[in-house]
Every structure is written in structure tokens, then in C-alpha cells.
Design a protein around this nucleic acid. Structure first.
Lengths: 113, 113
DNA sequence: CGGTATCCATATTGATACTG
DNA sequence: CAGTATCAATATGGATACCG
């Protein structure tokens, strides 16, 4: 039941598009993060969206979940090799966002580092 | 009234995200197109979405509309300077889509040229 | 040719509360 | 800490018909 796409951009958007997936991926690009860390770093995203998008990103092979099996719970998410292949896309989005914010004098937070 | 964003990627996604905006922009990146051309090149997008997204892209300063004032009607759309600044994003999306399609053996159409 | 208007269906998003 | 469940609001998408 694989979908067909009219062009490569349609496929890319289908997998990594949407309001929050690129943001989550951009954070994970900086290294593994725990669930709660991601919540704090993207406070405008509801918890439901975070959990849902993380599951989709796992299903699409971009993100891996690691349960450290400890009490209290400790779960980490990190990019897979496939996920790391998105680096050029995420970097381009980030750079464009920075430049656009400057041009339009829009206040903006930044990823650390 | 301007929105605030937690990171540059959120801003970028807000302006060029969604299902069809990147696809339209990728086509216009290849040069000016008429309304009907865009419809034929992206047949899976409804006419309503095309008209609506084009209006948004104009409002955001990424696309310019040129009415040739002829009978029958002849209207062209092309990227503004600001729109052309998206080239790295669009290229990265395109390239990743091509690679992903190959890895997953997904059939896919391509932009001409 | 290049659109709009209308109506409707579905998907996405969000607030809040709850659980192991 | 790391989630899930539920309900409600909004956004997005599509079919059809119509207009200068």
C-alpha cells in the first residue's frame, strides 16, 4: 500500500513535514534527548503531539527509542542513521529561519550550541 | 501581533511548511509558471489548495503574481528575491526525497530538467 | 484561462486529567 | 518520569458549481 508521489518534495514533506516533526528532529540532531527534555525545549508543543510525532518518527525509521529500564523511568530518543541523513534539510531550515527572523525583526529563541 | 517562536525551525515551518507550499515553491524555483501549468504539474493538489497557497505565498513575500492582462487570461507566478533565498531548503528537501525514494523503492515522479 | 464560492469530510492540534 | 485517554476546537482537504 505504498503511496505514490508526484515529485521528491512531496515524499519528503509526507515523512518529515508537519508543524512539529522538523522541530523535534532539529533538537535530536544536537544529540539524544529524554522525553522530558524535549517537552521543556519545545514548550509550545502539547505533550500529545510530542508522543504522537515521536511514534511516527520511530515508525518511519528516523528516530530510535531507548528505555533505560530504571526507576524513575528514563527514556532517550536519538536519530537513526536515516534520521542523520536529514542534517542538510534541518540545517537549511534552521539557517533560513534565522535569516528570515533577522529580515523581519521577529523575536526568536535558539537551539543551544 | 507578530508571533513568537521557540526556535528558527518553528518560524521556517510556519512560513513554508504544510503539505503543498514546498511543492509549489520547488516548481517555481525552476522558473515562472502559469496557474494552469502548476495545476497540471501537481495534479494531486486541489485547485482550492493551489489558489489558497499561492495567496499565502504572495502575502508572505515569497511569490509574485503577474497578470499579463490578455484575453484569454494569462497569469504567471514567480519567486521573489525572498523566495529565491529558499533554494537551499528546497534543494535539500528534493535531494532527500530522491534518496529516500531509492532506499525504500518508492515510485516517484520528478520535476523536469 | 484563471480563478471564487459553497458545502462537507477528515485530519491535526490542543487542554485537561489520569496512570504505571 | 514518561507517557495515555478523552473531548473539543481548528485547520486542512476535496467535489462541485459558477464567473469575468
Amino acid at each position: 500500500m505504498s503511496k505514490r508521489y508526484g515529485c521528491p518534495v512531496e515524499l519528503a514533506v509526507d515523512v518529515i513535514g508537519g508543524k512539529w516533526r522538523p522541530v523535534i528532529l532539529a533538537h535530536l540532531k544536537e544529540g539524544a534527548h529524554r522525553y522530558g527534555e524535549l517537552r521543556r525545549r519545545v514548550p509550545d508543543m502539547s505533550e500529545k503531539m510530542l508522543a504522537q510525532r515521536l511514534r511516527e518518527l520511530q515508525a518511519d525509521g528516523l528516530v530510535e527509542r531507548v528505555d533505560r529500564q530504571s526507576r524513575p523511568a528514563h527514556v532517550e530518543y536519538h536519530l537513526t542513521e536515516e534520521g542523520r541523513s536529514l542534517a542538510p534539510v534541518l540545517q537549511a531550515l534552521y539557517d533560513w529561519g534565522v535569516a528570515r527572523a533577522e529580515r523581519s525583526a521577529t523575536p526568536i529563541g535558539h537551539l543551544p550550541r
